[in-house]
């Protein structure tokens, strides 16, 4: 149970990084930490003690129920893969924006990048 709470602690660390740090690159790192905490949580959901990989091999194919009882849950792994792909896309867009912002403002400091007031 403790690992689930540790994931949430990591999530909070990411949010802290996002709020407290003034550098755009560190903010990006904060977002990435949040994403990884979520992915880690998803992986832990499918975990089973002494489980095997959910891939059917030729030796296993005659005894499907035993295989199903032994293997870990494959669905969260598929979800994690999808969310990693999405995270990659977000990260690339963030980095590209950061480079473009640096080109315009000549700084990564968010206190100086503030021509808009939300």
């Amino acid at each position: 149970m403790i690992v689930y709470y540790l994931c949430l602690v990591m999530f909070m660390l990411g949010i802290y990084c996002l709020i407290a740090k003034k550098n755009i690159v560190r903010k990006i790192i904060g977002i990435v930490i949040i994403e990884y905490a979520t992915n880690l949580f998803l992986v832990f959901i499918g975990y089973k003690h002494n489980g095997i990989a959910p891939i059917i091999t030729p030796e296993m194919q005659d005894n499907i129920p035993a295989f199903a009882a032994q293997s870990v849950d494959p669905l969260p792994q598929a979800l994690v893969l999808t969310s990693i792909v999405i995270g990659l896309g977000t990260l690339c867009l963030m980095v590209a924006l950061a480079i473009r912002l640096n080109e315009k403002y000549r700084t990564f400091d968010t206190t100086e990048i503030s021509s808009l007031k939300g």
Binding site: I15, L18, I24, K27, I31, I34, E35, T90, L93, M94, L97, A98, R100, L101, K104, I113, S114, S115, L116, G118
Partner: peptide, 13 residues
């Protein structure tokens, strides 16, 4: 770009 970055950070969270 600044608006987009702000939107991206909050949207990502």
């Amino acid at each position: 770009l600044e608006a987009s970055f702000k939107y991206l950070i909050l949207g990502g969270v």
